[in-house]
């Protein structure tokens, strides 16, 4: 963890020096210190926190919706042969469509307000959760399924005692991917549907006013949040699957 911070710090230093020593045009690449000062000012004057919260709330709403739907749908594909036959081909076809290609369709159906953004983020989270849940359920040990038959488990018991725990590591991987995908999608929607507060909006605004420090600030925040989300998800995953050879 501490060693992982070395490279970013060196880059930060190089960035600062490059701009201070005139290696890069400060209008294109403002010094790091200026970006941080901009952040300080934005925190007090431009409701930086409010923007960040707006992005995170949106992200969380879409992520939760997509993950929940993905868990159900992935379970259906993984466990029901009929479900897989009926819905599997369509899903696997549709998932090939690049996520941003959905934007025109979504804005026609849902407008460009908050709902449309959340739906878009949900789709981004949905796909990796479905794929990993399905695969995890399919991978359940046949030997344990047989133990379940001997113990006359009913449908609910099979799901909660065998399939869900078997699939848990895969599901957690899917959720971690969904967390990253939905954060990217959050920024994406804020770029393409620029209504309402959010970090993406901040960046667009900075670009339009040609204020590179605001753009850089936004990007920096995106990176830090993405990093934090990933770290939290990874930690949670390890805690939840501790029973696997410690």
């Amino acid at each position: 963890m501490r060693r992982g911070l070395t490279l970013p710090l060196i880059l930060l230093l190089a960035w600062e020096l490059a701009s201070r020593l005139g290696l890069a045009d400060p209008r294109i690449l403002p010094p790091a210190s200026q970006v941080l000062l901009r952040g300080w000012a934005a925190f007090w004057n431009d409701d930086l926190l409010g923007n960040l919260l707006a992005s995170l709330t949106r992200d969380l709403a879409g992520f939760s919706l997509g993950t929940l739907a993905g868990l159900c749908f992935g379970t259906l594909l993984g466990l029901s042969r009929l479900g897989d036959r009926l819905l599997g081909p369509s899903f696997h076809g549709l998932k090939q469509i690049a996520i941003f290609a959905w934007i025109p369709l979504i804005s026609m159906w849902f407008g460009i307000g908050e709902l449309a953004k959340i739906v878009f983020i949900a789709i981004a989270a949905f796909v990796p959760v479905v794929l990993n849940t399905e695969e995890g359920m399919r991978g359940a040990s046949r030997q344990l399924i047989e133990v379940g038959r001997v113990l006359t488990f009913n449908r609910r018991q099979r799901l909660t005692r065998i399939f869900l725990p078997s699939a848990l590591p895969a599901i957690l991987t899917g959720i971690q991917l969904a967390l990253m995908a939905s954060w990217l999608a959050t920024i994406g929607t804020e770029y393409f549907m620029t209504v309402g507060p959010g970090i993406g909006g901040l960046i667009i605004e900075g670009r339009e006013r040609f204020e590179m420090d605001q753009v850089m600030l936004g990007i920096l925040i995106l990176g830090v949040v993405g990093f934090a989300l990933n770290a939290v998800a990874g930690h949670l995953g390890r805690v939840l699957t501790r029973y696997e050879t410690a």
């Binding site: 030997q143 344990l144 047989e146 133990v147 001997v150 005692r161 065998i162 725990p165 848990l168 029973y243 696997e244």
Partner: peptide, 13 residues
């Protein structure tokens, strides 16, 4: 009841 040739324990329990 059957006790299988392998233990077949549930690893998460």
């Amino acid at each position: 009841g059957i006790v299988f040739q392998e233990p077949r324990l549930f690893p998460w329990l």
